[in-house]
Amino acid sequence: MMSSTVLITIISLSLLALISAVILYFIARKFMVFEDPRIDEVQAMLPAANCGGCGFAGCRNFAEALVNAESFDKLICPVGGTEIMGSVANFLGKEAPLVDPAVAVLLCNGTPEFRPRTSVYTGPADCRILHNLYTGETDCGYGCLGKGDCVRACTFDAMYMNAEAGLPVIIDEKCVACGACVKACPRNIIELRKRAKKDRKIYVSCSNCDKGGPARRACKVACIACGKCVKVCKFDAITIENNLAYIDVKKCTFCRKCVTECPTNCILEINFPPRKPSVEVQTEVLSDNPVV
């Protein structure tokens, strides 16, 4: 009696399993999608950060694009850089593009010390909302709002908010130039700049497009578009557009002449050895700039 129950159970369940297996097999055959096996392999080579820095939704999509691409023009993984792109190109038998390593820099230096707070914002801590509402807690309608959208966007822990300065800080070593912060910033004040050796940087740390007077009133370290840097630069690396100076990394030779010339100290020099005291200098330039 007992054994027959067990037997029936075993047989019926086994039959059920068998039928299900057959059905599954046919369904799997019918709905199978052919996928290039190379996609998996390319995906395995990629950093798997899914940061979107390449412009695709994730590493998988990028791998697909790489496999299907005719050439690697404009297909760059900023995280992996030349090395990984090279090995992917090797694997797929294509030409690897040269990736210029880049790093994000913040084009604003308006700490409360230089850029006085003129109002208090009590809405949600979200730069986009603040940007849509008004100029922000200071009178500068271009500079950093300090609510940290970029920090939240960074998937590499390469940014943090310096509460005292009210500005985000980018950690050069961790930054992979994926561009997530650039996209997140509603004021477009984060730029991806080509990395120089020893991570040296010279750039205009301001985004204020106002004329000199209002810009200076809103912030003591604003670019007032006086043009002194343009005159002092022997390499035509500096241009002024929209009342704002811009230093072209490709032309800049890191001579640092513009830094000392700038009357508002809005050109930053970072990761340089201290200047020799003999050269006429304002040595406090470096210490003045908490954003490094």
Binding site: G123, P124, D126, R128, I129, N132
Partner: peptide
């Protein structure tokens, strides 16, 4: 909750 703030952002 900042309902309208985010709705306005979404709407824009």
């Amino acid at each position: 909750r900042p309902l309208l703030d985010y709705i306005r952002l979404g709407k824009t």
